[in-house]
Write a protein that binds this DNA or RNA. Sequence first.
DNA 1: AATGAATGAGAGTTCATTCAT
DNA 2: AATGAATGAACTCTCATTCAT
Lengths: 199, 199, 199, 199
Amino acid sequence: MGKAERRQDLLRAARDVFATKGFHDAKIDDIVAAASVAKGTFYLYFQDKRSIFSELVDGLFARIGGAILHVDLGSDIEAQVKHNIRAIVAVLLDEPKLTRILLSYAPGLDPEFGAKIQSFYAGVKMLLKESLTEGQELGIVAPGDASVYATFTLGAMKEILFENVSGAAARPREQIVLELFNLLQRGYLRVDGERHSPG
Amino acid sequence: MGKAERRQDLLRAARDVFATKGFHDAKIDDIVAAASVAKGTFYLYFQDKRSIFSELVDGLFARIGGAILHVDLGSDIEAQVKHNIRAIVAVLLDEPKLTRILLSYAPGLDPEFGAKIQSFYAGVKMLLKESLTEGQELGIVAPGDASVYATFTLGAMKEILFENVSGAAARPREQIVLELFNLLQRGYLRVDGERHSPG
Amino acid sequence: MGKAERRQDLLRAARDVFATKGFHDAKIDDIVAAASVAKGTFYLYFQDKRSIFSELVDGLFARIGGAILHVDLGSDIEAQVKHNIRAIVAVLLDEPKLTRILLSYAPGLDPEFGAKIQSFYAGVKMLLKESLTEGQELGIVAPGDASVYATFTLGAMKEILFENVSGAAARPREQIVLELFNLLQRGYLRVDGERHSPG
Amino acid sequence: MGKAERRQDLLRAARDVFATKGFHDAKIDDIVAAASVAKGTFYLYFQDKRSIFSELVDGLFARIGGAILHVDLGSDIEAQVKHNIRAIVAVLLDEPKLTRILLSYAPGLDPEFGAKIQSFYAGVKMLLKESLTEGQELGIVAPGDASVYATFTLGAMKEILFENVSGAAARPREQIVLELFNLLQRGYLRVDGERHSPG
DNA sequence: AATGAATGAGAGTTCATTCAT
DNA sequence: AATGAATGAACTCTCATTCAT
C-alpha cells in the first residue's frame, strides 16, 4: 500500500467523520476505524487531529480559489458572472461532505478554528467587494455600500448551498445558479412599483 | 438570594462564556466562576451543560418569533416588511452575545444540536416561504421558487448580522434594514445595460 | 478529610512510589492507588507528575539547608564540623525514601530533571568550597584545590548514605559521622610515612 | 558492510544518544538516525533498547576490571596505588560518554537496572575492601572499618570523575590522581592545631 | 540483510458530573 | 440551598516492537 494512498484513505475517512460528527465529536478512533488502520498509523501521516482538519479545509479553499475567473469587461458580463457562480457551486457540490464541514464550521463556535475559517470568508468577501466596486465604476453594480452587497451575496450563497449538502433540499445546480443571479440582478420583492421607482 | 436570580446569574454567565469561548471551550468552571457560585450549584439549576446552552438558544428563538408581525395586505406593505426586518434586527442586536452564539452554532457541527437549530431555521424559512407565496399571489413577490427566496433572505440576514455581532463591522441598524430591503426589492447587479445606464 | 491531609497522603504515596520505581516507572495510577484516591484527585493537588516530584525534592533540599550551621571559628571547630555532618546525616536518614530518590536521581540520566538536582549539588559544593577556602586561610584546611576537597567530601558522603538508604549496609549514624570526619582529617592510607612527611 | 561494523555503528550511536539524552529520552529513532540505518535494522542486532544499553555498560565494566592491577607489597606501594588510580581514571576519561552514562545510571532509579549497576559497584567495593584489609595487616592502611574506606574511595572517585565527564570541571588527569591519593593518605582537615600550624 | 510502514498497549491529563457535608 | 472535593470515563498522542516486502 503506497504512502500516498494511505494518506488519501485517512483524509477521506476524516472528511466523512468530520462531516458526520463535527470536529469535536470526531475522535481519532473514529477516523482510524473508518480508514481501517491502527491508531498509531494516523500519526505517521498527520501531526495531530487539527492538522488533518486544516488540510481538508485548505484543500477546499484552494479549489474554490482556482475556480473563480476574473471578469473580463469586454465580453458578455452576465455570462461571466453566471460562469463564476456556476464554478463555485460546482466545486462545492462536488465535495458535499467537505462543503458541509466548511459551512458548518461557523466562526465563533470554536475560537481556535474559527479564526482560520473567518479569515477565509473575509478573503472571499474582500474579493467580492473589489469586484463589486469595480463594477460600480462601470455601471454594472448599483451604487451603494459594496461591502454590504458582498456580505449579502456570500450569505445567500452559503445558505442555499448548505441546504443542498445537508440534505434539506436537493436543487439542480443550474437552478441555484440562475436564482442567485436573479437575486443579485432583480431581487424578488415587487412592492408598489409606482411610488418607489428606482433612481 | 432568590432562586430566579441565581438562575438568571447563571444564564448570563453562561451566555458570556459561550459567546467568548464557544460551547466546547466553555467549561462549567468558567461559568460558575463568572456567576460567582460553586460548581455544585450549577447542577441545582440546570441538568447539564447542554441544557443551559439550549435554554439560551431557546430564549432567543422565542424573542425572534415574538417580533415578527403578520403582514397586512391592506396597509403599506413596504413599511410592514421593513418593520419586520427592523424588529428582527433589533431583537438580535439587542442581545449580541446570544446572537453570536445562535449564528455561530451552525447546524451540522454537532448532530444533536444541529437538529435543534436546523429545525428553528427551517421554521423561519417556512414562515418566510408562506408569506412569500402569499405575496406572489398578490403580485408583490416575483414569480419563482418561494423557498429559494426564503433561503436567500435568511442567508443574507444571518451574514450581515453576524458581522455586526462578531465585531467585523458595526453598521447602523437602519442601514442594515434598508440595504436588506433594497436587496430583496432590486438586487444590485445592473448587467442589463439599457434600463440602468450609469450616470 | 482536610485538604492538607489529602495533599500529604499524595506526597507520601508519591514518595514511596518514586523511591521504589523511580520517576519514569512510577505511574500516576500507582501514586493514586497508593494514596487510595481517584486519578482525577491527583490533579486537584498537583499540576502534574513532575511538580509533585519537584515538591518532594525541594522539601528535602530545604531541610538540608536548614540543618547546616555556619562554623564559628571561636569555638571548638572539630565539634562544630562533626555537628554539621551529624545534622545532614540525620536529615537524610530520617527520610530514607526521599534520600534514596535524591541520591538515585543522578544528573545526566534525564536532562529534564537532572538540571534541577545538579544545581542542588552545585550549590552544596559551592557552600562547602567557601567554607573550605575560609578554613584554608585560618589554617584548619590543608592548602590545595578547595573545590576538589568539596567534591570528594560530597562524593564520599553520598556514597555512604546511599548504602544506608538502599539497604546495602545499615551503619549507625554516629559511625558514619566519625568515619567521615576521620577521612577528612587523616585519610586512611599509611604508605611510607618517612619520605612524604606533610609540610 | 560487515555485521560487526554495523553493530559497532549502532553501539556508538547509542552511546552518543544515551550520553546526551539519557535512557528514557533516547528514542530508538534517535539511535538509528545517528547510525544511519533503518529502524528495523536495530532489532537485527539487539534484542531491545535495554539490551544495547546493558551492553554499553558491560563493556565499560570489563575495561575497568582489566585496568586494576593487584598490589605487590614487595615494591613501591605508593607508586602502585597511584598506578591503579591512574589506570581507572584513564579508562573512564578515555570514554567520557560511556562514563557519563555509567555514573549517571544511579542504582535505585530503575530497579531492574539498578540491581545490575549496584552489583558492579558492590564488586568494586569488595575488591577495594579486600585490598584495604590486606593493607591493614601490613600496616599501610589505618585500622578501622575497611568497607567504609572502600565506600568513601568509590564515592570520591565517582564524584570527581563525573565532574570531568559532565563538563562541570575539566581537571588534568594527573591532578585527579594526586588529589585522590592525598585524600586517602592525609585527608585535608587540620583541626588539630599543634601539628599543622599555618605558615 | 535491510527496510520502514504499521501496530496497539499504555501514559498523562481533562472535565462534566456527583454527593457528603 | 449551597458547597467544592472527589470521581473516573474518555481522549489525544507516544514509541518500542513487529513483519511483509
